[in-house]
């Protein structure tokens, strides 16, 4: 983490992104803003976590980066090049190859009628990323080996595997494309507790080996703390706080972040039983003053606030820092 501060290369940059859907059900036509003015950068080599609850727009935003969802306004840049909107055919293919996705539900995201060999080779076929048949098979074998599966699995079908194995097939199929950025949409929440750790370890290992960058979408802060370098908290389509992981866990400022942190269940009965819940309630807040925006309060620590709130947060931060300095 230390050398990151020196020369950080921005890999992906999200600028003023709004994503709205037409909601034609019910009376009249309503536009539902799933993502509101999102702004953040992802640096090469880091794991950037996007944390929010259901309906927060985190998946919508992740899919917009993969260009499955269209933006209403704003731009997304990948390696300095704009990838939102219309692209030339070569650029389009290059972006498809460079940004890969790991899905939440491995059972739903694998083609049940195709062998594992085809599932993993699919991307290779599409981009002709192999010299000859031999080379393709070698690549598939290596991808399987990288995720801890055996060559004998190639002729099997997805339904013959356990959830954890299937998720590793999903990872192998993304990795074989040699992508630069991987959007992982809740990759472990559909898995059984006993195998989650294995998938997390694997993702960390592959990141180190291949110099990957992750956008890790999650609803669970406890997982995110282990895996990510920086965290953005998203609430009802709005990013309310961005900070480095330890900074966010030590000095959360936005009340929603605090409530989310307090809700993480800890595997310790004494701690858990004495815990006080912090319920986030928008209605009780003092919203006076000008409109809030996402502003930088400490280097790398952004919070969604107006100027009056910024002053309050600053005071809280100073107090916390003073307390820590004493210890």
């Amino acid at each position: 983490m230390s050398n990151k501060t020196n020369e950080k290369e921005v890999l992906l940059s999200v600028r003023n992104v709004d994503i709205a859907f037409d909601n034609k059900t019910g009376i009249g036509k309503k536009r539902f803003r799933a993502v509101k003015n999102a702004n953040f950068d992802i640096y090469r080599g880091e794991t950037f976590a996007l944390v929010g609850e259901s309906g927060s727009g985190k998946t919508t935003l992740g899919r917009a980066i993969l260009r499955i969802n269209e933006l209403s306004t704003g731009e997304i840049y990948f390696k300095g090049k704009k990838i939102s909107g219309k692209l030339s055919k070569e650029d389009d293919r290059e972006v498809i190859r460079s940004i890969q996705m790991i899905f939440q539900d491995p059972a739903a995201s694998l083609n049940e009628r195709a062998t594992i060999e085809y599932c993993i080779s699919e991307g290779l076929y599409n981009f002709h990323l192999y010299k000859d048949e031999e080379d393709r098979i070698a690549k598939v074998d290596k991808a399987l080996h990288d995720v801890g599966l055996l060559p004998e699995h190639k002729s099997r079908y997805p339904h013959e595997f356990s959830g954890g194995q299937r998720q590793r097939v999903g990872i192998a199929r993304a990795m074989i494309m040699e992508p630069e950025l991987i959007v992982a949409d809740e990759p472990i929440s559909a898995l059984d507790v006993s195998i989650r750790a294995q998938v997390l370890n694997l993702m960390n290992k592959l990141k180190d080996d291949k110099g990957l960058t992750y956008l890790f979408i999650a609803h669970d802060l406890s997982v995110v703390r282990f895996i990510s370098d920086r965290i953005a908290v998203i609430h009802l389509g709005r990013i309310v706080e961005i900070a480095e992981t330890e900074e966010l866990f030590k000095h959360p400022l936005h009340p929603y972040t605090i409530s989310l942190l307090s809700a993480v269940p800890m595997p310790d009965p004494r701690v858990e039983k004495s815990k006080k819940l912090v319920v986030y309630d928008d209605s009780g807040r003092d919203l006076s003053g000008e409109k809030p925006i996402l502003q930088e309060i400490r280097p790398g620590h952004f919070v969604f606030a107006n100027d009056r709130e910024m002053k309050e947060y600053d005071a809280i931060l100073k107090e916390m820092e003073a307390k820590e300095a004493k210890q």
Binding site: G164, S194, A197, R225, F226
Partner: peptide, 23 residues
């Protein structure tokens, strides 16, 4: 033991989590 030690809450960044193999 395995269930408890594989919890990501207890994970130390940069180190592997303990995990249970198989099904």
């Amino acid at each position: 033991w395995a269930l408890l030690s594989s919890l990501p809450q207890l994970g130390v960044k940069g180190e592997d989590l303990f995990y249970i193999t198989g099904t």
